[in-house]
Amino acid sequence: MTNRILLTLALLLAGLALAGELPAGPGAELVFAKCQICHDLTYPLQNAGLSEDEWASTVDDMIDYGAPIDEEERSVIVEYLATYLGPNPPPAEEGAEGGKAAAESNVDGAAAYAANCAGCHQAAGQGVPGAFPPLKKNPVLAKDASYPALVALFGLQGKLEAGGATYNSAMPPLGQLDDATIAAIVNHVLQTFNEDLLPKDFKPLDAATVAELRKQALNPQQVLELRAKLLDSK
């Protein structure tokens, strides 16, 4: 019970209704993708209430620590944090944000990968041993294109082995990306990093299949269970 009191207090301090959720707004996706390379969303959420200057200096600190954030991204992130986690209440939600139409299917997979994945898994998919698993030459990905799509949609959490190293961490779900973007990223990862492992009859993943997978609403641990099953199947 007292635990709950502490938790409530922490939330009150942060001025938030729900733990772990970024308010929707322009830049939220970038904050989601970049900040979680090194730390949980708990940190920006706990620090809600800082002024624009304080957020700017915080983001600069993170860049000093090695966060891969360029000049343009920096201004988007600072503006988001100052607006939605700043000293004043955020503007009313702008509605359209979540359900972006999955318009064209010709999304640039390489660009989408660079924007959403490369921060952790690195530009060539080589990963960082012990911290971020490699996507390059990773057989489990090539077994079934649905699996990487599920990881992107719902995240992955728990202990796993890849490329001879063990990992025990959490990848955040990237479900805010539309179906076509997820399909493009998966195809990029498979066709660029795992070309040799793909079956000869490999068919690129399409947005409709991603839409179908999205309905499963898994949690990151369940995705890990699926990974284990996939590995067991020969």
Partner: peptide
């Protein structure tokens, strides 16, 4: 698996929410 555990909010609604382990 999801049916067995039967506790899924619409994940997409909380797309930018984080499941802290």
């Amino acid at each position: 698996v999801s049916a067995a555990l039967g506790l899924f909010p619409a994940v997409t609604r909380f797309a930018r929410a984080q499941t802290t382990p």
